[in-house]
Amino acid sequence: MPTTIISSLLKRFLPLAITVAVVVWLYHHYGALTYTIENTKEFMRFVAEHIFLVVVSLAASVIVGVSLGTIMTRKGFEKTGPAIMALVNIWQSVPSLGVIALAYGFLPLLGLSGIGVLPALIALFFHAVAPIVRNTYAGIEAVSADVIESATGMGMTERQILMRIELPNALPVIMGGVRTSSAIIVGTAPLAFLIGGGGLGFLIFTGIALMDMGILISGAVPVALIAMIFDNLFGKLEKIVVSKGIQAEEYQTA
């Protein structure tokens, strides 16, 4: 049916078209394009720093979050698991700026610098790890007891059950956590500039300070684009790594 083709094309490309139109208009209207072109080298450095912050802190969140979430489901942690979960939940409710400020104020007490890339990474990591911990824990806990029982009864070791049954079946939920974390990190990363972490935050805060919309837009728009690209990538990744046997129907027919 041609109408369904048209509507699916619209569905797919309309958001993209609108995004492009808005970006072009913003750049044109506020002169951000001129600013970006005149300072290409610097701009590229900010983008690189920004992506570095996001990727490294997200990678750390995934590694630590999945490990911690998994450990909490192991034997011997039946009591501590929920306690850690409660702590993680409280921790997550601290606002972004608060986390950055805490890193700035707290790290020197540990003999570390409160200024620079490392404190920024630490702050982003701590701010974003909670959803991954929580989703990994919840995802593994949600694997049906019958599935685990039959796996055990057939002679799989605990490790085999974790790697081949529990984690793969928890993956959609874990991926949801990773996407949330990625959104949190991408959204918080501009604040890293406040404690000397670099990145596109420089342009945004400079733009605000100078009341120069051009500079501000040339930082804010790439931040938004990076957020969209990351979310899109994770959506695609999810379809690849999650087994078809447990994907939601909408993914299968898409």
Partner: peptide
């Protein structure tokens, strides 16, 4: 050995417990 023992005994339960992530 527990693991060897279990691998030599077929196990079928009421709620089946097929692995949803596997074909």
């Amino acid at each position: 050995d527990t693991i060897e023992l279990r691998r030599s005994i077929g196990y079928v339960i009421q709620n089946i417990g097929l692995f949803p992530n596997m074909t």
